[in-house]
């Protein structure tokens, strides 16, 4: 049975996601999230593979009143597995770590499998690292429910969403990474008063 598509999974949680500070990894996820509707609180980390969770941790510790969501991939997380132990050590309650696991390095153009295709269980690794709330989701409904519960619990969470190795037609987004970077900084540094405030 085919797994869910990443774009459908993102669409399922987009209403809540649009209200959060979101840091993505590189490749298909940022292109698909951008296609659903850019927000000033969305930051797409092109390159720097593996560091999205570390950037998210830096933001979450610096701005504990903001809900931060990191969107990672299996290949990206496998490059920075130690990050799970650092996340768990500081356990920021305002950080939810979503890992879209398609079991391949999709953006290189040929489907080279990652170790999750041969049995590596990233949710189990997160739990073993000490992340207090973890789940593996196979459908949009499961992800929507797990994400809603993690938001309500206000607890560090790693949610692994198993998705098809299918991406968007291209990875170009009409927002230069530096423009995105300064827009995101301005959004993060806005006065803490209202929620979902505009720049």
């Amino acid at each position: 049975m085919p797994r869910m598509l990443r774009i459908d999974a993102l669409r399922a949680i987009y209403p809540e996601l649009s209200q959060c500070v979101v840091v993505t990894n590189m490749g298909a996820a940022p292109a698909e999230l951008f296609s659903l509707g850019h927000q000033p609180g969305f930051f797409y980390l092109w390159h720097s593979m593996g560091l999205a969770s570390s950037v998210g941790l830096g933001i979450a510790l610096s701005r504990p009143e903001q809900q931060v969501v990191v969107i990672d991939g299996d290949g990206s997380l496998l490059m920075n597995l130690g990050s799970l132990t650092t996340l768990a050590r500081y356990r920021p309650a305002n950080l939810i770590h979503i890992v879209f696991d398609n079991e391949v390095l999709l953006s290189v153009g040929r489907s080279f499998t990652t170790a999750t295709a041969t049995g590596t269980d990233l949710a189990a690794m997160a739990a073993a690292a000490g992340v207090p709330r973890t789940a593996t989701c196979h459908t949009e409904d499961e992800l929507r429910r797990a994400f809603g519960e993690a938001l309500a619990a206000h607890e560090l969470s790693t949610l692994v969403a198993k998705v098809e190795p299918v991406g968007p037609p291209g990875y170009f987004i009409d927002l230069h990474f530096l423009e995105s970077r300064f827009q995101f900084q301005r959004h993060l540094r806005r006065p803490a008063a209202g929620e979902g405030g505009q720049d």
Binding site: F43, A52, V55, L57, G58, A60, L61, N80, G82, T85
Partner: peptide
């Protein structure tokens, strides 16, 4: 940190957050 490169990401996040 578990590995120093994480600190680059953490400092980047902290800077963006002010």
């Amino acid at each position: 940190l578990a590995k120093e490169e994480e600190g680059v990401g953490i400092s980047a996040g902290a800077h963006l957050a002010g």
